[in-house]
Design a protein around this nucleic acid. Structure first.
Ligand SMILES: [Zn+2]
Ligand SMILES: [Zn+2]
Lengths: 691, 691
DNA sequence: CAGGCATGCCTG
DNA sequence: CAGGCATGCCTG
């Protein structure tokens, strides 16, 4: 096992209580509530914490390690201030007393409570304990930072959860009538034994969903692919260079597509993870399930992509504010011969659970569950000087005017409107082009909300016809993933500007667009806790581990950086390396917990010592370019602190802060890692002979 | 055989005279001389033509087809003129009387002679018969067009030659002491039986060169990878998306790299082919060969790249003006297990030539040899209106000023200086970064010639210390490939601007930079025919089929289009498709002889009917974008005529001609195709069992 | 649609 | 470094 994650080791006995370990729904709930609190008042978590790890087949393996970490960090960034003020509230917790006595967590978190300084900014209303109704408003996941005291950085990623959780509505997935076997190259086949879907690349595959009772209106299903093996879990699942979509395409990096015309594709600004969201419609009368067609754009074997690593799909049923009502996980193998491979895997699975317990190869050896929350706030300043440019030649003039126009317009428009506009444009375009798989008729189902540059076009939201006026605008609160990445550092803006934005619903006329932050917005419509629509009750106790709202305020209108970065670029290290043709070396970054380009400050020359000379030069140059300001003068660069707070500083080259904004972010991370000895157990392809 | 090339069929008997077929060196010579003539005076080829096809193992296969085509086309494009005036000089020659009586070609070409109208433009000096001294000056390969009368378009690509030609200096390659076999995964091994190199990806592989007599000074070796199979020959060999280099890297698409620090990497503007050029140094005293280390950046199996298609390297020894002094061809297989694969191929090769002649699989079924020449001319106009732009905010101002500055500077600077500047910058940067394979010390060996934007930096040309003052400036005359592509149509400029430029020598102080075309330049320094340096004699009879000079004048300073196109983009359809993730459909384009984006006008909706709906939409949209002007207004678009001249028109959307230039191009193509029934003969991997 | 190859890569 | 698997794809 080549886990890239530095971890302290703790040995423990084999455990059948696995299914009842830390980071359960209660954890989410408690954390959520408490963190809300904290963001606004400095108080912290008192409730006991439990974790519920499912979906990993531990077999009879021996636990080798069981570690829990908790961290609270606060970052504040302002223009023209030469140093990032990182306020480590609680340095970190290297390891917890071994589980399952996770109730001790309560007292631990109590300690944290006192360690956390009162929030400096006060533009937030006091917190409350209703995760569903308040979560979206104050808890987002953008701003994260390296842990202030560790070095090398600990594994503090906000990893996606793969914990199955049917929830109050008994959310379930289904793959139709089980078949006992299938032709070698059927387009897809599901193995009930393995609980695994085998599907050909780019072939539509129906997946069905149901809930026992009707969930609140305007729910949607999010589909997020993750790597199954713990050592890859931190890596974003995205398409290989060979199968990436066209640059204009918001789903260009998405492994999974859905044929539903109302599908929205997201790329999380922080984690860079690619997920899709599709409105959940209750089953037609007489049918038990709601069916959706999905396609997968890469083989699991794709070089420079999945690269023969197992993946899972995480399906979350989320309400309109992004709270998670249920979660299901499905193992998937995208391959050219689903039938053959299913047979092979089932065969080897039979063998593996046969009495003699003969050793098999490569199994998942580590399981990590992480919950994290980050709150975030931001203000904008202005740049109002006037200049004149004299231009020779009409062509240049028109070109420049075009650029100027767009710059001006971007300034005029609320950042989230810009974001929204972009996302809408792109997705509308996609629809117009009938670009969705399986040729499902592409109705313009998303209403237009663009009071900005291009004139508003379509209307008619069939997606959320019942959107209640008293529900909070989810504009800034699309659920997304817990995957860490520093918030607003360095050149990340330019990327973020171009990224897909988190915003599943666009028909939000009840609420005017706003440039305020999520926290600020709470002042406008505070304490909806007790009145969050008809689904208040259900929503109350719902965890949001995977569904942290994200403020699109991160999308800054400052165009300075876009100059050097193509719209197709992705903030993930993966994509960064891809562009350099150095994908092979992603380990180096993963090891340092560097997952997006704005974390590149973490990387120094020595980290690259393991790679060949020439490649190192290329890489280092590219890193420097991203670190140290690109072509433009006055491009402020902020350095990301190393693991130690003392190294944190700003590389501002005399310029103003990007976008002239003030940012404050507080992040909380709770992580548990279980490590266990693998008895060589895995579905494997080799042992057919001795069957 | 799935030859994409529409061809008329002609059956012929098996032939052992293969080695003496059309398109020999004499052909080149004769063509060259005659075409020179034609460009300037309208006269055409009288000499008999012979062709010498080597390097294809025909075995005892039956020739099914033997076709020769000859075409002359002239294109003229001017701003504000609504129609491309295509002057078909000679409609085309569907098929020639069957060979080997190729001497009849003489009379055929005589007919052509009278068919060719006198040249409209007269800014060329009279032609002469010295290919080496005049070739670079008037014959270039930029301007090509679809044949005016055919439909569907015939295979009129300017394909690279793979004809072995030791030449007057007996140019030879060598791979060191032959080994009888090698370990499974040696980094490289050469099979003398197969005359084939097996090499691991990214591993240095020494290849040696020699000549019996010393070639003229300042010679260089060009290395160009091509596909071996005729059906792929038209496709540019480049790296797969997974192995492309970083965008700044001029060699990012080059399959082959050379560790020599003086290596220059080219991407032909017209053909989009990627080659490298390295100075040829005579062997050290006491050694027989000059050794160079090469690396290969893709496996032949790379998906979206070589894709399991056989390749060859074409090594040409070229003099300083780009004339070809010798050519050698080497089969190469880049694979993970060179030893294993060599063994396998040798085994199956033995079998294949065993008496019983058991059928083997997939062999090369068609061989195509093409010679082509295009002359090209261009003039620039001006755009001098003055405008004022008022800008709010310093950031935007500075951003815009930066852009304006660069636009202005581009206008001030001669296009070839810009080009040169860019190429130099990039390659210098590469050296500085010690970016070359194998860590060979990176001396700045290319002198700086940048009288333009960035101040001149390095000096000291160790590359061409003996560059004679009376040699013609090769600035515009780097040898390149005969691969067709339309000249100055549509949005190709924006791509070209960003493309690697053809210019192997940069120490050219004797000649001031010039914006004039190659033809115009001849007026400035006319008739160097008889005085082209010390190597006049040798150079005289040398063919230039692969070494057609290219005018970098193609690189227009007009920045209008760069806006939407990232610098890393490549004009080839391959890359275009790659970006869209639709590489699978390259056939469609190959079939229509569309190889670069500026030929996209050739493609219409129906052509895409074979591909899946969604992909079609993506593709079509992308094509339309490239065809029809991007985001900017006043972006003139010129349509490429379909195979029929009557469909040729300009889609100018009321704008001025791109760059306000007038273009005139004349192209000549002579092509022979041999088609033969394959007795299932090929090196194959399957038959090990029955050994 | 099944058989089986081709070929990068993993494991001993 | 050799054995051998994994897996897309080609051929009947
Ligand atoms: Zn892929
Ligand atoms: Zn490759």
């Amino acid at each position: 096992m080549d886990g890239n994650v530095p971890l302290t080791q703790q040995t423990q006995q084999p455990s059948q209580e696995m299914a009842d370990l830390p980071l359960s729904q209660e954890t989410f709930h408690a954390l959520w509530a408490t963190l809300q609190n904290d963001v606004t008042s400095g108080s912290i978590l008192q409730d006991p914490v439990q974790v519920n790890l499912q979906n990993y087949d531990f077999g009879t393996n021996v636990i080798q390690e069981n570690q829990v970490e908790f961290q609270v960090e606060q970052i504040q960034m302002e223009p023209h201030i030469p140093n990032l003020s990182i306020i480590p509230s609680m340095p970190s917790l290297p390891s917890m007393p071994s589980l399952p006595n996770m109730n001790s967590e309560g007292s631990f978190l109590d300690q944290l409570n006192s360690a956390l300084p009162p929030q400096a900014g006060t533009d937030q209303t006091p917190g409350h304990n209703m995760p569903s109704s308040t979560g979206y408003a104050s808890a987002t996941e953008p701003a994260t930072s390296p842990p202030p005291s560790f070095s090398p950085p600990p594994n503090n990623q906000q990893l996606p959860s793969n914990v199955e959780y049917p929830g109050d509505y008994a959310f379930e997935i289904n793959l139709g009538q089980p078949t006992s076997q299938a032709a070698k190259s059927v387009s897809w086949t599901y193995s009930p034994t393995l609980k695994k879907l085998f599907v050909d690349r780019d072939k539509p595959c129906p997946i069905q969903f149901k809930t026992t009772s009707a969930p609140p209106p305007n729910c949607f299903i999010r589909v997020l692919p993750i790597f199954k093996q713990a050592e890859n879990l931190a890596e974003v699942v995205s398409r290989c260079p060979n199968h990436v979509g066209s640059p204009q395409d918001y789903s260009k990096d998405h492994l999974v597509l859905c044929s539903d015309p109302a599908t929205m594709y997201y790329t999380d600004l922080q984690s860079a993870r690619h997920s899709l969201v599709v409105p959940y419609t209750v089953p037609q009368v007489g049918t038990e399930f709601s069916k959706y067609l999905f396609t997968f754009k890469c083989f699991i074997s794709c070089v420079g992509g999945l690269n023969r690593r197992k993946i899972q799909l995480v399906f979350t049923l989320e309400n309109e504010t992004g709270s998670i009502l249920g979660r299901q996980v499905l193992d998937v193998r995208v391959c050219a011969c689903p039938g053959r491979d299913r047979k092979t895997e089932e065969k080897s699975f039979e063998k593996s659970k046969a009495p003699q317990k003969k050793p098999l190869k490569r199994g998942p050896s580590k399981v990590t569950s992480v919950v994290g929350l980050t709150s975030f706030s931001k203000k904008a300043k202005k740049d109002e000087e006037t200049f004149l440019i004299e231009v020779q030649g009409r062509e240049k003039y028109e070109l420049l005017m075009k650029i100027k126009e767009s710059l001006d317009l971007m300034d005029c428009v609320a950042p989230n409107q810009i974001s929204q506009y972009r996302q809408q444009q792109a997705q509308q375009q996609m629809r117009l082009n009938n670009h969705l798989p399986n040729g499902v008729p592409n109705l313009p189902r998303v209403s237009s909300f663009q009071s900005t540059p291009p004139p508003s076009t379509s209307q008619g939201n069939t997606f959320h016809p019942t959107l209640a006026l008293n529900s909070t605008p989810p504009l800034n609160h699309a659920p997304s993933l817990n995957h860490s990445s520093p918030p607003l550092l360095n050149h990340s803006h330019s990327y973020q500007q171009q990224q897909t934005l988190q915003q599943p619903f666009t028909n939000l006329e009840p609420y005017p667009p706003s440039t305020s932050t999520s926290l600020e917005r709470r002042n406008t419509m505070p304490c909806k806790d007790e009145a969050d629509g008809p689904n208040m009750m259900e929503v109350d106790a719902i965890p949001t581990s995977q569904g942290f709202p994200v403020t699109r305020d991160l999308t800054l209108p400052n165009p300075c950086h876009t100059q050097n970065i193509s719209p197709s670029q992705d903030p993930s290290i993966d994509c960064f390396l891809k562009r350099l043709g150095l994908r092979q070396h992603s380990d180096i970054f993963t090891q340092k917990n560097v997952h997006t380009v704005d974390q590149l400050e973490e990387i120094n020359m020595e980290d690259l010592s393991s790679i060949p000379h020439q490649q190192r030069e290329i890489l280092w140059k590219a890193i420097l370019e991203l670190k140290g300001g690109l072509q433009l003068n006055h491009t402020p660069t902020m350095n990301r602190g190393n693991s130690s707070a003392s190294t944190t500083s700003i590389h501002s080259s005399g310029g103003s802060m990007v976008g002239n904004q003030v940012y404050r972010a507080t992040r909380f991370t709770l992580k548990q890692t279980l490590s266990f000895k693998v008895e060589k157990e895995d579905d494997d392809y080799k042992d057919d002979d001795d069957k």
